[in-house]
């Protein structure tokens, strides 16, 4: 009638472990791949660059971990990037759109939008560590948020003097 204690104990251990394994399978399953290497060539048009920049913003650049594009409902934690191309032209006196973007990504603490706390890492340094070409792509992507991407690799980005 009574099952042996040893069997019971094994059943409890195995049962509890199985139960937690099962719970682990219930939640959404998502595998994160390391960011792929993106080829950026000299001949790329600004629009093509912006497309690469979009990939970077989602993946390796980790921009969209914090920022939103087109936020709906609830308070903002970090500045929303929708239509940022327009605002960048006039946000800081003396900085045109390109300078403003370059400063925002390479020296994020130089200007912090009112109402937000500083905390963004410089994306050309580790751990994100985007290359110069990739920075161009990200800036092109920013320009395309409510505007037209114009930057090419021929232009030099101010504020982002090398990864070191």
């Amino acid at each position: 009638m009574r099952s042996p204690v040893g069997v019971n104990v094994v059943l409890v251990v195995a049962g509890a472990t199985l139960f937690y394994t099962y719970v682990g399978q219930l939640v959404p399953q998502k595998e994160l791949q390391p960011p792929p290497k993106v080829e950026i060539t000299q001949e790329m048009t600004p629009v093509q660059l912006a497309k690469v920049g979009d990939e970077l913003a989602r993946g390796k650049g980790m921009c969209l971990t914090c920022h939103t594009v087109g936020h709906s409902g609830g308070p903002l934690r970090y500045p929303d990037l929708a239509g940022v191309a327009e605002r960048a032209k006039t946000r800081v006196a003396g900085l045109d759109q390109l300078h403003y973007f370059a400063q925002s990504v390479c020296q994020p603490d130089a200007f912090v939008v009112a109402g937000f706390a500083p905390g963004m890492p410089a994306i050309h340094r580790p751990p994100i560590g985007l290359s110069d070409e990739e920075l161009h792509a990200v800036v092109a992507w920013l320009q395309s948020q409510g505007g037209q991407a114009t930057i090419t690799l021929k232009e030099k980005l101010p504020y982002c003097g090398g990864p070191g």
Partner: peptide
């Protein structure tokens, strides 16, 4: 009002 909430 636009731009005041969606910033940066």
């Amino acid at each position: 009002a636009v731009g005041a909430e969606v910033a940066h």
